[in-house]
Write a protein that binds this DNA or RNA. Structure first.
Length: 966
RNA sequence: GCGGGGGUAGCCAAGUCUGGUCAAAGGCGCAGGGCUUAGGACCCUGUCCCGUAGGGGUUCGUGGGUUCAAAUCCCACCCCCCGCACCA
């Protein structure tokens, strides 16, 4: 199959990005082979479904993966970051089908949103072509965005691929042997016209509606049964009558050897859910109304009455009435009492005798909650729309806090939620109950047909509900690295709640089930352990092994170590060395160290991924880590092709370049927060990246001086940045890490230049080199460019990650700068407060005696917290005779100083810097003067000839000088 | 309903685990200044309220509580977003 090349040109807005992409490719620096001398790190992201272009949502998750891969690679790990394409599923077939039918909307989306050239859209009537097309295009996007992928290992899924389906066959045979696959049946939303399940996106109406389980309760009458459907079987003890809608026709049907009376529509529904449903006869409800039927379990006779609120299209069209606890039923009785419409039935007398029966005790209500709420809301008949609301209220209250009263046989004293289940089972056991699946809301298929619920028979299930399997999975989840931590509980909950999963389909692309080939393994079920395939796909892609040679025995050996390689080599005619090499390679790379995905996959794919690994592999090969992240919004809105809120990655790259796209995404969110893509942000980031490159160019050109006064500070800051960026990356806090690497470093650099007045030292160049490295995982193209501008050989992508050099950390240099910044800040505040022109700043440094007080007061604060001001004041008075009057003010300033500095600085640092305080201001005098536009004079408290008109020198404390402005 | 996440200044968004350095990072917007032929970019300053000296007052969904001290801990409530299955 040939896919047109012109459709797949991806051009970045930034010229050098293409250059580096090609150089990487040429140098093959991202191809990873086993290397026993290095620790390995295998990272992957879930492959994406090839039914459209990769978009910025993919971009977000995948960029996080790439950043982590690049980071680990620079840290010296042998990193494997593989890639593949998901073709399995029914959506692509749906697109083809719609296109064939001439659906203009889908055509428009393909051309206008996805950017498919109009002349080839016609070929999209072949589902395989679609996936092929997007795979070709998206591969180019993955390269263009700079993901550091080993493309030798690439594959796509389904039996269209030479070997993928052999792998899936092995997987399913293995699961079946272990009894994790079983036959069963399950309800689906079904279109009778299309004769297929109607998934959410195949619907015109009823998105998100899923089948709900009703209990059928059989009331016997004349050798047949009235089949009432209910969500609340426990209310059977409060039944007073049965409702039929007299305006509609009912039918007598035979199911499982029993004769049932239901509405005509219900008969149709039942026939999709039960075998051998036969319609025997029409039944006119008039012939039943006024008669009595026998209630199961309690054997009492209840009358059959007319009610128009009964919807014959819903459930069975037969409703049993519980006026004590169901507002509709009580309202139905009210209607019968007040209206003369049904006089023909002569039921007035019967109706008069009916009294609600109280069977559930619920907080906040008396005997008859339904009666109460109907009266409270002043509802007068069964046509009142507020009955919906009343029903919801009572239903919910009783379900959550209701307890069955004494008149409920063996169910008395049980909570409603438990009794409901038990009554249902009892009824079914007695063959006086059954299950009916119903759609709580109307669902209409895209073809325009109203859907119903069908029970699909002989469906294959993955038995996720198996308690042993579950508990193994849960135990492993407790031991995994899960990022962020909150996701762990979510996983555990999902495992608890997961039921058996229908793992086969009849339509769409995929792999046939080996033992039952009319079924195709469903999309979420054929993509669980494929990362294992990456470890050997490199060899398979070379064509040295034919697909037919990939038998179950082959995979048993390579992945599970079963069997004798020599024998197997003989049998399969696979070179023994190659066979062993594949086994070795699997053992080298596996398990997956980190899998990164959006959080929407937690309740399905990611959990399945753990389940299947646990089921199939040795424990040492189970996944080590999972990181999940939020889902993209665009300008605050959910992504949506139909509303135009959709940005393909190729578009972002073409508009802003790969690095700006990556960086904008990374800066948008981390953990489970949803990132928001904003045009304004990406513009801003693009400029910032340009600014960064400009700085690198300037430094590369600059005449470097040997040393500046700010070098120590700059190096110290650098160490802190390295530490923080590394720590954040380690736990995939990509937002924080990227922010600090870009803006944090930038701020340090700006301050450095501001202080040195643009003079750049050799150390400063070191800072810039480190900056390039620290940014390399985030904006790799720009960093390669920067690296070469700095005159460096090779790729920064495979340089070593900076490590913290403890000896370069200088708290004194940092504190010194802080003191200067604080001084300037204080002066500015005062300048803004006092009127008039300011020309001169006088700084007063505290007397030397005050330095000793720092330690003494520090000790008091340590011992007693900040409470004991008295003791601090006394200490000050004893050390500074004659300062009694201002001792309390000084005490406060001291305490402020100490409590603000001690979290970051050791006492010794503070004292050392205080000793040098005068020197610090004298050194920075010119800078301070320039910053503030004031002349600067410096005095020490107590100095002779001191100029101090406001007596500011007196209330000074070390590192908190007095200020006088005039 | 169940499960998960969240409500912070004009807006976006950190901080919450590990209470005090938080009137609260960063960005945007806005205002003033510098640079520039001009604009853009860039740089500096300001941006809750009050204050002619580095101070004070009131804030972090709402209401309580714990504490010398709460955006941060505890309880209750209100509101928003996401998932709930055969769909990738």
């Amino acid at each position: 199959m040939v896919v047109e090349q012109k459709a797949t040109i991806i051009e970045s807005a930034v010229p050098y990005e293409k250059k580096w992409m090609e150089k990487w490719k040429q140098a093959r620096i991202f191809e990873a082979d086993p290397d026993p001398s290095k620790p390995k790190f295998m990272i992957c992201v879930p492959y994406s479904y090839q039914n459209g272009p990769l978009h910025i949502g993919h971009g977000f998750t995948f960029t996080r993966g790439d950043v982590y891969a690049r980071f680990k690679r620079m840290q010296g790990y042998n990193v494997l970051f593989p890639w593949a394409w998901h073709w399995t599923g029914e959506a692509v077939a749906g697109t083809s089908e719609r296109l064939k039918q001439g659906d203009q909307f889908i055509r428009k989306v393909l051309i206008e949103i996805d950017g498919v050239p109009p002349e080839i859209v016609e070929k999209f009537t072949d589902p395989a072509y679609i996936s092929k097309y997007y795979t070709e295009e998206n591969r180019k996007v993955v390269e263009a965005i700079g993901f550091s992928v080993d493309f030798r290992r690439e594959f796509y899924t389904t039996d269209l691929h030479p070997y993928y389906s052999y792998f899936i066959k092995w997987q399913y045979n293995t699961l079946r042997k272990k009894k994790y696959v079983a036959l069963g049946k399950h309800p689906v939303v079904w279109c009778p016209k299309c004769q297929s399940p109607t998934g959410d996106h195949d619907r015109l109406i009823g998105e998100g509606v899923s089948p709900q389980e009703y209990t059928i309760v059989l009331f016997s009458i004349d050798g047949a049964y009235l089949a009432a459907a209910t969500l609340r079987p426990e209310t059977i003890f409060g039944v007073t009558n049965i409702w039929l809608n007299p305006n509609h026709e009912y039918v007598l049907i035979e199911v499982d050897g029993k004769k049932l009376i239901v509405s005509r529509k219900a008969a149709l529904k039942l026939s999709e859910q039960k075998k051998n449903v036969k319609i025997l006869d029409a039944v006119n409800p008039d012939t039943l109304i006024g008669k009595y039927a026998k209630t199961p379990l309690i054997d009492i006779e209840v009358p059959i009455l007319p009610a128009e609120f009964v919807d014959p299209d819903f459930g069975t069209g037969v409703v049993y009435s519980v006026p004590g606890h169901a507002p509709y039923d009580y309202a139905g009785l009210l209607t019968l009492k007040t209206s003369s419409k049904w006089d023909k039935y002569n039921i007035k007398e019967i109706v008069e005798k009916i009294k609600p029966i109280s069977i559930i005790k619920v907080e906040g209500y008396g005997e008859y909650p339904a009666v109460e709420i109907v009266e409270k809301m002043k509802i007068l008949d069964d046509k009142d729309p507020r009955l919906e609301e009343a029903t919801r209220e009572i239903y919910s209250k009783e379900f959550h806090s209701g307890v069955m009263k004494d008149n409920c046989r063996e169910f008395s004293g049980k909570t409603v939620s438990i009794a409901r289940d038990e009554v249902k089972h009892k009824l079914i056991e007695m063959k006086l109950g059954d299950v009916l699946w119903e759609l709580p809301e109307k669902v209409v298929c895209r073809c325009g047909t109203e859907c119903l619920v069908k029970i699909v028979e002989n469906q294959w299930f993955l038995t996720y509900s198996d308690p042993e399997w579950k508990s193994k999975v849960k135990e492993h989840i407790l031991n995994m690295k899960i990022i962020p931590e909150e996701a762990r509980q979510w996983f555990l909950n999902v495992v608890d709640w997961l039921k058996d999963w229908a793992c086969t389909r009849k339509t769409g692309l995929g792999t046939r089930l080996p033992w039952d080939p009319e079924w195709i393994v469903e999309t979420l079920s054929d993509s669980t352990i494929y990362p294992a395939l990456y470890t050997i796909s490199k060899h398979l892609n070379q064509g040295l092994v034919k697909p037919e040679q990939l038998t179950d025995e082959f995979f048993d050996y390579v992945f599970l170590g079963k069997g004798e390689p020599a024998k197997l080599s003989n049998k399969l005619k696979i070179d023994l060395r190659l066979l062993k090499e594949m086994r070795e390679e699997f053992l080298y790379w596996y398990p997956v160290d980190m899998r990164i995905s959006a959080k929407e996959l937690v309740p399905n794919h990611l959990t399945f991924y753990i389940f299947h690994h646990v089921a199939i592999f040795d424990e040492k090969h189970w996944p080590r880590g999972i990181a999940v992240n939020g889902m993209i919004t665009i300008e605050g809105e959910k992504m949506s092709k139909s509303r135009g809120k959709f940005i393909p990655l190729k578009t972002a790259i073409a508009r802003y370049g790969a690095d700006a796209t990556r960086c904008t995404l990374l800066l948008a969110a981390e953990d489970m927060d949803d990132p928001d893509w904003r045009e304004k942000n990406v513009q801003e980031v693009k400029q910032m990246i340009e600014q960064f490159l400009k700085i690198v160019e300037e430094v590369a050109r600059a005449e470097l001086v040997e040393h500046t006064y700010m070098d120590r500070w700059l190096m110290s800051k650098l160490q802190k940045r390295i530490k923080s960026i590394t720590m954040n990356l380690e736990s995939l806090k990509t937002r924080k890490a990227c922010h600090e690497a870009l803006y944090g470093m930038y701020n340090d650099w700006k301050w450095y230049l501001r202080r040195t007045e643009g003079v750049i030292s050799k150390k400063a160049k070191t800072f810039i080199e480190n900056w390039v490295k620290l940014l390399a995982p985030f904006i790799p193209f720009t960093c390669e460019e920067a690296w070469s501008i700095l005159g460096k050989e090779g790729f920064v992508s495979i340089e070593s990650w900076p490590i913290v050099l403890g000896e370069l950390i200088s708290p004194e240099a940092e504190l010194q700068e802080e003191v200067i910044i604080k001084l300037i800040e204080d002066v500015r505040r005062i300048i803004n407060l006092i009127p008039g022109k300011k020309e001169k700043l006088t700084i007063y440094i505290s007397s030397r005696e005050k330095i000793d007080l720092i330690e003494e007061i520090y000790k008091i604060v340590e011992e007693e917290g900040q409470k004991n001001m008295g003791r601090i004041i006394k200490t000050i008075i004893s050390k500074l005779p004659g300062k009694e009057k201002i001792a309390s003010t000084l005490a406060k300033i001291y305490v402020d100083l100490i409590s603000s500095l001690t979290p970051n600085y050791k006492l010794k640092t503070i004292i050392n810097v205080a000793e040098r305080e005068e020197e610090i201001y004298r050194e920075a005098r010119e800078f301070i003067s320039k910053e503030l536009g004031l002349g600067v004079e410096i005095y020490r408290e107590g100095e002779q000839d001191i100029y101090d008109p406001l007596n500011k020198s007196e209330i000074t404390v070390p590192l908190r000088p007095g200020i006088y402005i005039e």
